[in-house]
Simulated scan of single mutants.
Amino acid sequence: MKKILIIGIGAGDPDYVTMQAVNALNQVDVFFMMDKGPSKTKLIELRKEICRRYIKGDDHRFVDATSPQWTRGTEDYFSTVDDLNRDKQVLFERLIAEEMADGECGAFLVWGDPTLYDSTIRIIEIIASSGRHDLDYEVIPGISSIQALAAKHRTTLNRIGQSIEITTGRKMAEGFPEGADSVVVMLDAEDTYKRFADQDIDIYWGAYVGMPDEILVSGKLRDVARDIERMRAEARQANGWIMDSYLMRRGGGASGGSTT
């Protein structure tokens, strides 16, 4: 039997790696590194740095593979994602078949937490249940960007007795979720928060949280929305990519504004 570990490695700071993840890293024979292009090289290097820092010995190897890319801005979002995941499934299955020997352990190092807006678990589950491979898999949780964001801003995700919703920029464009006091927004490529700048809402925004390029902004949305938009555009241009998320909360939380 072959075994796959899906390891959450945290939101960017190698210190976010849990002891469970460290123990898992030391079981692995082959690490699959998904190359998403020149602008994302830093993410691969960080994964390898985590391995150098926490793995004892050198009896493991890295296999680099070009990750399938998806077409942004298409009308049928769900079909596009389905196509992307099918392409990833073909790639993952080939890696498992050709780059692992029987009895070996392979691993995918997932940014943040594998259970949150990531398809690796679903893809490996499909491969394991297909019957084409004698395959087992395990999921190791990680510190998500949501947890890191709240900690960096020294706040909680929810207020006492209140609800919170985790959603995407695409869904947030439909409006602030009814009944939610606080909303965490991920995967927002369109600066959707600007739609709520005329309301009494506090925002806690962060980009590259836990990394050297970290940017944090908090305050009344009406006061800091333009700053976030400008910083976001500048950071994307400088790095070629951006990884950010934000917490929005109905008025009564933050006051004034802060930027770091």
Rank of each mutant, 00 (worst) to 15 (best):
R154W: 07
D191Y: 14
T192E: 14
I127D: 01
E138L: 12
A173L: 09
L157G: 05
H153I: 05
E174Q: 14
R195Q: 15
E190H: 11
F196Y: 15
A173T: 10
Q147I: 02
E178H: 13
V139Y: 03
I146Q: 02
D136W: 11
Y193Q: 04
I126S: 09
N158A: 15
I127M: 00
L187I: 13
A225D: 04
A150Q: 03
M231H: 12
A207Y: 11
A150R: 02
V185P: 05
A148T: 01
G210V: 01
R236E: 14
E138G: 08
D191V: 08
A173I: 06
M172K: 06
E190N: 13
R232I: 04
K220F: 11
P212I: 10
A128H: 05
G161Y: 07
R170C: 07
R159M: 07
M211L: 14
R154I: 14
D223C: 09
L135H: 04
D213I: 08
Q237E: 15
V139M: 03
L187D: 11
T168M: 05
D202M: 02
E229H: 12
R226F: 09
I143D: 00
A207T: 08
S130P: 02
L187P: 06
A151E: 02
R159S: 13
L135T: 08
I126C: 07
V184P: 03
T156Q: 09
R230P: 03
Y193L: 08
I164L: 14
R226H: 13
S144W: 00
W205D: 00
Q237A: 15
S163N: 12
M243N: 11
I143N: 00
G240Y: 02
M231T: 06
D202S: 14
R226L: 12
W205C: 01
T156S: 12
S129L: 07
N239T: 07
V209Y: 00
R195Y: 09
N239D: 01
D134T: 11
G240D: 04
Y193A: 04
D213K: 11
L135N: 05
S163L: 05
P177M: 02
Y204E: 03
G206L: 05
I143Y: 00
M211V: 08
S182K: 01
